[in-house]
């Protein structure tokens, strides 16, 4: 099934990439997460299976890694869109799609930094409008600031899809087995980095016992992930009740301190 992408598909996938890119700036509907972007790309390509597997594999590499304080992380959502589209249209399959999407996602970091850098231009425009007392122009600048972010996703996706099969053929022609096989292995290995980043971010030492419980449930008892998550929910509820009880026992200090602060603030 070596067909070219239709113009409509290219347009829709390009718009999808832009939408996934700007979603965190609008409502945070998680469209920028690779699993969701991959699923939506699969939907547009008429091959949900490929989109899901590609997106899910990439998702595991950036599990729970957010862009806190403006740090740029690999953009595997864009990677998933390009990988899914090229994987489906070339008929080369899921592993090939993952092999393409990993380097794409990594290279996208530089573009993300560049696009975010454009934000400085808009903040100075807003400063100027306020100084000139042209307040309604603030709205325009706020929304225009999405253009660089959207284009930083739409342009690479559009270009690589327009040249779809040429790109795939070039990759196949010049990428030897050690590279494609290595990328395939990397697709399986890289989730450990996502997990390790999370372990750095979360208070693992405090909850080490629960990390081990999760491992035991999966490795020895073979409980599916949904069951493990629900087991975690039960533990979380017990822990939450324990914390609330403990605070009820010693509330006096916290309340008096905060109400004091309130009075002084009211005087201002």
């Amino acid at each position: 099934m070596t067909a070219d992408l239709s113009m409509i598909q290219i347009t829709l996938l390009t718009l999808l990439a832009a939408a996934c890119g700007i979603d965190p700036y609008i409502s945070g509907l998680q469209l920028s997460k690779p699993a969701i972007a991959g699923f939506l790309a699969g939907l547009l390509m008429g091959d949900i299976q490929t989109g899901l597997v590609v997106g899910s594999t990439l998702q595991l590499m950036v599990l729970g890694v957010g862009t806190f304080g403006g740090a740029s992380i690999p953009d595997f959502a864009t990677g998933a869109i390009i990988g899914t589209a090229l994987g489906v249209v070339s008929g080369k399959g899921i592993q090939f799609a993952i092999g393409i999407s990993v380097p794409v996602g990594l290279l996208m970091v530089q573009l993300d930094v560049f696009a975010r850098f454009c934000g400085v231009y808009f903040v100075h425009r807003v400063d100027k409008h306020i100084a000139n007392m042209e307040f309604q122009k603030i709205n325009r600048e706020a929304w225009l600031s999405l253009i660089p972010i959207g284009l930083s996703r739409a342009i690479p996706v559009g270009i690589s899809l327009i040249f779809g099969n040429q790109v795939v053929n070039a990759v196949l022609k010049y990428a030897p087995d050690w590279l494609m096989g290595g990328l395939k292995l990397a697709g399986a290995v890289l989730p450990v980095v996502g997990i390790a980043i999370l372990l750095h971010y979360l208070p693992v030492n405090k909850f080490m016992a629960f990390l081990i419980v999760g491992y035991l449930l999966a490795a020895y008892m073979k409980i599916p992930m949904m069951g493990i998550a629900l087991f975690g929910l039960v533990c979380a509820m017990v822990h939450f009740n324990g914390l609330t009880e403990k605070q009820k026992a010693t509330p006096a200090v916290a309340v008096s301190a905060s109400s004091e602060g309130e009075i002084t603030d009211d005087e201002l």
Binding site: P191, Y215, C235, H239
Partner: peptide, 11 residues
């Protein structure tokens, strides 16, 4: 806590 437990199962 729930997140850490899920990660344990994920590995």
């Amino acid at each position: 806590l729930m997140g850490v437990l899920v990660i344990g199962g994920l590995i």
